[in-house]
């Protein structure tokens, strides 16, 4: 490792490596997509196909499904790298590890979040979501899934090598503020009110969450080296 390489170079390197790996394995981006679509399909089956009922609940249904699927997808984010020793390399490098961890989370968000957002546009048709609020849906999901990926990474680090359900139980209570903000954006958009305030708050949560959660994730990964 030479001094010429800046932290940004390392960040890009990790991002590129992870992107290549996940594109090579199609399961990483197809599984959350399919999970999302199946969960969304459950709601009309359980609630009945009434158009007015579904359209009033559509935003909430899409949000809950997106939240759950991005949370489940992030579960295995560190397990492979932990097993083959890539994570060890992060810690012996002189770079700030949390930046590299953020690269991994970002890659995960790009690979899993984007298909979910595409699928949510598709399912908004299934659920008769008013078409005027599509923009609000996409914006809120973009910010929301990034926050979920960050939280999910922390959960995955805390429960490395333990059951997946544990990580879900740890992380879900912490994801409630995101869910509330996301659905607040949607209900404001449906009522044709100004929702930029809620978007700023979500942005604020991300601004604190990106460095804060990545640092805590590093702490949590370190636990597994004792």
């Amino acid at each position: 490792m030479t001094n010429r390489d800046s932290t940004l170079d390392w960040f890009m390197l990790v991002l590129r490596r992870d992107l290549t790996l996940s594109f090579r394995r199609s399961a990483t981006y197809i599984t959350p997509l399919i999970f999302f679509l199946i969960v969304v399909t459950f709601f009309p089956l359980a609630l009945g196909p009434s158009q007015s009922l579904l359209s009033s609940m559509a935003a909430g249904i899409i949000w809950i499904s997106a939240l759950l699927s991005s949370l489940l997808a992030v579960e295995g984010i560190f397990s492979e790298d932990f097993r083959d020793g890539t994570l060890d390399q992060y810690f012996v490098s002189s770079e700030p590890v949390f930046v590299l961890i953020f690269a991994k989370v970002l890659c995960h968000w790009l690979v899993c979040g984007a298909p979910i957002i595409l699928a949510s546009v598709l399912s908004s048709v299934f659920l008769y979501l008013p078409s005027g609020v599509l923009f609000a849906l996409i914006i809120s999901l973009l910010l929301g899934t990034l926050f979920m990926s960050l939280l999910g990474a922390l959960g995955a680090a805390l429960s490395l090598g333990r059951s997946a359900i544990l990580s879900a139980i740890i992380v879900l209570p912490f994801s409630i503020p995101t869910l509330l903000m996301g659905t607040a954006i949607m209900s404001a958009a449906i009522n044709q009110q100004d929702y930029s305030g809620f978007i700023s708050i979500m942005g604020a949560m991300l601004a604190i969450g990106i460095p804060g959660l990545c640092l805590l994730t590093v702490e949590a990964i370190l636990l597994n080296y004792e």
Binding site: A184, A188, M205, I210, P211, G212
Partner: peptide, 21 residues
Amino acid sequence: TVLLGAIAALVLVMSALSKNM
């Protein structure tokens, strides 16, 4: 980074509070 994030969050929250939401 934590400081920068906190400053950004503060600005965003201030702008959110100025709106009726």
